[in-house]
């Protein structure tokens, strides 16, 4: 990859903003650790999202001001957060009833790989010496109504993360609805990956070239997947 090519597409912040644009007002949302957390910073004016964190808080707010945090008010990433007006605390069984029971509208997660059928791999590289750790990822993809993935289109080595079938251990089968990358927005449809939107300066051929499965072109009237 040349230096010029490195700069095409959306930045992490622009990817997060692109995700935020697609989340309806009033949605109950769980944001995964890392890039997904950035989404909260880009919610359009006039829209209110209600944030759930699986360790037991609804109406989670941003990080506290220095010195005002409580080590026992944290998010799933174990970082200190705040509770907004209207917040509630609950135990783990209730929290995962919200998740598994289909009460949350949307979850935004990172990915190692997404398959054209919507399978997600995001919890383990599967190495023999790795310490396996899964947390709530498998519950979230099994139960939340819509699963959005936010990820770089390719790995640091240039390998596609959108593939025909995942080679890493699965988090869930046929669970992903949409993928937001630095190059494009792609829906998972019964026909496979379908382009929804392109980053400025990026064309269909570029995205197809960097995708490990067939990509369907943008439809004239793209409906929500």
């Amino acid at each position: 990859m040349t230096a010029a090519e490195k700069h095409i597409g959306w930045s992490r912040e622009e990817m997060a903003a692109r995700v935020a644009q697609d989340i309806p007002d009033g949605s109950y949302v769980n944001l995964g650790i890392g890039i997904p957390e950035l989404v909260a910073r880009f919610v359009p004016e006039g829209r209110e999202l209600i944030y759930h964190t699986e360790n037991g808080l609804l109406n989670m707010g941003p990080s506290p001001k220095p010195g005002e945090g409580d080590p026992e008010l944290i998010n799933a990433g174990k970082r200190q957060v705040t509770a907004k007006p209207g917040a509630s605390y609950f135990h783990q069984s209730d929290s995962f009833a919200m998740i598994r029971g289909g009460h949350l509208d949307l979850c935004v997660l990172g990915a190692l790989q997404v398959s054209q059928a919507g399978d997600l791999a995001n919890w383990s590289l599967g190495g023999p010496d790795d310490i396996p750790a899964v947390g709530g990822a498998m519950d979230l993809v099994a139960g939340v109504k819509s699963i959005f993935v936010i990820t770089q289109h390719c790995t640091k080595d240039g390998a596609p993360k959108l593939v025909e079938s995942c080679t890493y251990p699965l988090t869930g089968v046929r669970v992903v609805n949409r993928v937001y990358t630095d190059l494009a927005v792609i829906a998972v449809t019964p026909g496979g990956f379908q382009l929804v939107d392109l980053a400025p300066g990026v064309d269909f051929e570029t995205v197809q070239e960097r995708t490990g499965a067939r990509l369907l072109p943008i439809r004239e009237t793209t409906s929500n997947a």
């Binding site: 783990q92 069984s93 995962f96 396996p132 750790a133 990822a137 498998m138 519950d139």
Partner: peptide
């Protein structure tokens, strides 16, 4: 040794 259990499954098994 380790028995790895998804967090929600762990919670529900305990409940």
């Amino acid at each position: 040794t380790l028995e790895l259990v998804p967090q929600g499954t762990l919670a529900e098994r305990i409940r």
